[in-house]
Design a protein around this nucleic acid. Structure first.
Lengths: 230, 230
DNA sequence: AGTATATGATAGTAAAGCTATTAATTTTGT
DNA sequence: ACAAAATTAATAGCTTTACTATCATATACT
């Protein structure tokens, strides 16, 4: 696709801006940092977040456990970093694709498509594998906020990118139907619900009707345009 | 409420049937087992699932760590037990309240009310505090299935009660609109989405429109009856 | 060449997540 | 009432996780 190509080239020159306090040292600032990010994505994907440790990662990247700690305080912060990057990347795609659109119905339709479609291709331009990262978000994102420290971490701004994404969606919903009383709830339902539907497709297929053809995108587009009265 | 009273009395004589393999020894079969369940609910609620340990629980109930291991293999299994109990309890309420209803629209409306309303009163008839257990489900349920072991544990039947609940809801949706193509997805969205909206109300109020008056129940009832065409 | 700075190697600590063994207590069957 | 059986408690110990601290080495910068 032409658009994808343009997108890929553009993404090369754009750095996703992540809250400084999530990392000790910016992993984008060195080769080791990038290797940490790259390989952690592979490992978390393979063994799951609970089994993943900095020690194992150190062995995998032939580096030292203590060196990893110089980039991230702990694996929870690394997860916050990875998921923030993912949401920032999605946000960028969303803004890029919908910015120039005039028709607000088409705009919202496109927006839902972007945030609910599965990631199928790796851009191959950064050290980050977006396909695997998408899988990590599906399987682990909830764990990044379902903690006793949410409120403190939220105050620190660790979830700003995600919140901005929900707000953008919510604004687009409002643009279509000012009288709909739940634009934010609907926006958050789309984002969270989409991850959940993908999880169900993989592990509890009887609890979802989504599959290759009728995917989460169609489900949510249908849902949203049924509730909204333009 | 009359209904609640009847319900409470009825619940006394009903035991929620949980898959044998979730526990080593049935906690309902002894005083120690009941104390384990009762106090673990308080502790998980207070300190969160990650900080909760069997050692701490042992100290709290003035018993021994190793004694707790005779009831549950590990804290993950205990979480599976607690959440299964919760879903079983909800299922019971759902069936009890909707069984005799003739009008399928009213039935689904009631069903949504039951599964999405916050638990506000403790029945005081069992050692289980349903209000706190509801909070645990909101904050920790996802962690019980977002693991590398889901498929194996699903095969063991550890999630049957939850799946049955989704199916019941899904059937009620189908009863209203046979042509709606996503009854299971909608049912799972209601259950999961409702927990999520409660979480947002507590920690990310800007991402939801739900609050005391416009609660998740009204949001989901509105959503569901907008998509379905009877 | 000299000095920051980043990385690596090694060691060590506290707590988590168990298992095993033995002792004490409670329950139960006759 | 008493012995046998089952449960629970106490203690110890083991491996792994999640770090922290220290010192050595490499590399880069001026």
């Amino acid at each position: 696709m032409f658009q994808n190509n343009v997108m890929e080239r553009l993404m090369q020159s754009v750095k996703i801006n992540i809250n400084d306090n999530i990392y000790v040292k910016d992993p984008e600032s060195s080769a080791l940092g990038k290797r940490i990010v790259k390989e952690s994505i592979l490992m978390i994907n393979e063994m799951g977040f609970e089994c993943f440790t900095f020690k194992k990662l150190g062995i995998k990247i032939a580096s030292n456990e203590s060196s990893i700690y110089r980039y991230f305080e702990n694996k929870h912060k690394l997860l916050l970093y990875l998921t923030s990057w993912y949401w920032g990347w999605l946000e960028y795609q969303l803004v890029f694709a919908t910015n120039s659109m005039g028709n607000s119905t088409e705009k919202l339709k496109k927006a839902i498509e972007i945030v609910t479609k599965g990631t199928e291709e790796d851009s191959a331009f950064s050290h980050i594998n977006e396909v695997l990262l998408n899988k990590i978000v599906i399987n682990e994102y909830s764990k990044s906020y379902l903690t006793k420290e949410v409120d403190a971490e939220n105050k620190e701004g660790y979830f700003v990118i995600y919140k901005r994404l929900v707000t953008r969606l919510s604004d687009m919903i409002r643009a279509i139907d000012v009288d709909y009383p739940y634009p934010s709830s609907l926006a958050s339902t789309i984002l969270e619900g989409s991850l959940h539907q993908y999880f169900l497709m993989d592990h509890f297929p009887t609890l979802t009707d989504c599959h290759q053809i009728n995917d989460p995108t169609v489900y949510f587009q249908n849902l949203v345009f049924s509730v909204l009265k333009p």
